[in-house]
Nucleic acid binder design. Structure first.
Lengths: 334, 334
DNA sequence: CACCGTAGTCGAAGCGCTTCGACGGGTGAA
DNA sequence: TTCACCCGTCGAAGCGCTTCGACTACGGTG
């Protein structure tokens, strides 16, 4: 193993000079710095984590991801990938925590100095981990917006606005009766923030536009899709606009309507809230509000890094929703 | 922060005694150990990573996962989850490396002491990372079997046997003309080990049983499925048995056959090589050889931990394939 | 021309932990 | 009874790094 002392010897300076030359925490002449950098390159030096940690930066970010039902796997994976990529771009590594560990994992990471900060996903409105975050000094960023985000750094898609946007799109097309097919029931029971906020937006926009509306959570799978579709039409025979917020259900729902003899978008218009690829590659390309998982991950990292450097960061960043028109929505009665 | 010295003071012993009491590396009287443990509990002591690392155990396992095309996301996620869970059970954490980093990531982790060992997935037959693994002393476990596994620790499903098993199942049902619909072409171009080995098994079993057979890589999506299905039937009009090794293609392929007027299993029998849930929840439940991602992850961790402790470990562990009969296979001509 | 400030560097201390060597006191064998 | 040995514990050293406090040399100021 090549240590800082080796580099110092090679560059003809003292170890502390090497340290300063690399960290930039004290002025070092260009000549010296160049020699140090050369030595580092020639020797292939890399600061040992243990040693470095004494200065109290481990260069690791923790990422807590949920692995439970009702969570769409590709979205989570997308987070993970973008977080890792972004972290690497800032010279950090990523430690993977599963949500099952919940508070335990955060506590360990905080007290142990394993990670410098933590990114949380799948935030509930009343999240049990929040008190821990507030009390500890562990820097953190949430992907998701809890009920009381004061004092926390959050970044998320503005799901409320997304819900409104979907409704407005349908309303503009002349639809008067709309339904929201949501995530599986357990997601709402857990009071997962983004799901709730979408419902709020959907409902309030529907009311504002004086549309008849209803909301149904829905599990995944062809059978579940069939079941909600039938139920919706029974309850609201005039239904012509549907918003779906449930990635794996997009295709099955298209099938289900087809099976019931309804054409999309001829008889029913469908708007999805899901990652763009899901919408674009569905059986029928679906008009959608994109959930920008990758961007959220990247932003979260950027915020956390900034926080670690001591710079001030905005409390809450809500990305404005953007609706992309595809083949699944059309004016009513066309 | 509570240090080992605090614990020592509280327990009325020296710091070194605390260290030994906790690590068990020297005999400590029961009385003392109990007092130490009590102090640890009362103070909420956790060994600081930086300090601990001097003794050269960071308690972290690195996991390199691929995020490139042709890889089925849920399988990767399954690995990740089972690895994290298993690692936690052994008191370790998991650092997430993306394959894009490739050698770079492994080098960093090794030289930096960030992780104690590394688990690699998505192994190619000639994997560029292997030389690095052999040369460095970094303990590693591969999920996947490269062409020359000597001196490495590997664990994988026996894909060769899996390929054979599928063919044998079809042969036993009387099918005489069979096809393998494989992973996307790029997977083979990369010489991904598991894909190649499945093809080998499939082909040699087909030859042994004197079946007419063909192999087609295939991309994902409904169109691709339609295309292979048509092509297969054009080339082999007598085709009655199909093996598919491409998770996201299972459903589209079922659709495609249906569209061509072929019933499954009436006209064509289909065997999939994929995770059990995929097979079980397909449009028609599909007879399958399960890819036990979770078990592979767990085993990999177990092996790596064992290796870290200095215990001898088997070189290669191949899990025997198990075929589960479902609704998609039937005797020929029934 | 005396003085001060600053840029650039070094040495030493210290971080929390592990581990080596030593030591005291008991135990078993001779 | 004596000696050797081992168990249990301690003190000190050391890991690779950062950081604090000096120190030197030089240029600018009054």
């Amino acid at each position: 193993m090549v240590t800082i002392t080796d580099v110092a010897r090679r560059a003809g300076v003292s170890p502390s000079t090497v340290s300063y030359a690399l960290s930039g925490k004290r002025p070092i002449s260009d000549a010296t710095r160049l020699r140090v950098q050369a030595a580092v390159r020639e020797l292939g030096y890399r600061a040992d984590v243990g040693g470095r940690a004494r200065g109290h930066r481990s260069g690791v970010l923790a990422l807590a991801v949920p692995m439970r039902s009702g969570i769409h796997v590709p979205v989570v994976t997308q987070f993970a990938v973008s977080v890792v990529t972004a972290a690497r771009a800032h010279d950090h590594d990523v430690l993977l925590l599963t949500q099952e560990e919940g508070e335990e994992g955060i506590g360990r990471v905080a007290e142990t100095g394993l990670a410098d900060g933590v990114i949380l996903t799948d935030v509930q409105l009343q999240d049990s981990r929040l008190p821990l975050l507030r009390s500890r000094s562990l820097p953190s960023v949430l992907i998701g917006l809890p009920a009381e985000p004061e004092g926390l750094t959050c970044v998320d898609l503005d799901f409320r606005a997304a819900g409104e946007l979907c409704v407005e799109h349908l309303a503009r097309l002349g639809h008067r009766t709309v339904a929201l097919v949501g995530s599986p029931p357990e997601v709402y029971v857990r009071r997962t923030a983004f799901a709730r906020r979408l419902v709020d937006g959907f409902t309030s926009a529907a009311d504002r536009h004086r549309l008849t509306s209803t909301v149904h959570p829905c599990g995944t799978g062809a059978d579940a899709a069939r079941a909600v579709a039938e139920r919706l039409l029974r309850e609201l025979p005039a239904l012509t606009g549907v918003v779906v917020h449930n990635e794996p259900l997009v295709d099955p729902l298209l099938d289900a309507f087809e099976h019931l003899g309804l054409r999309v978008p001829g008889d029913v218009s469908l708007v999805a809230v899901c990652p763009a690829p899901v919408a674009a590659t569905a059986r029928t390309p679906v008009t959608s509000v994109a959930v920008p998982s990758a961007e959220l991950g990247t932003r979260a990292v950027r915020l956390l890094i900034r926080k670690l450097s001591g710079a001030p960061v905005p409390g809450t960043t809500l990305l404005p929703p953007r609706l992309t028109q595809r083949a699944s929505t059309a004016p009513r009665g066309v």
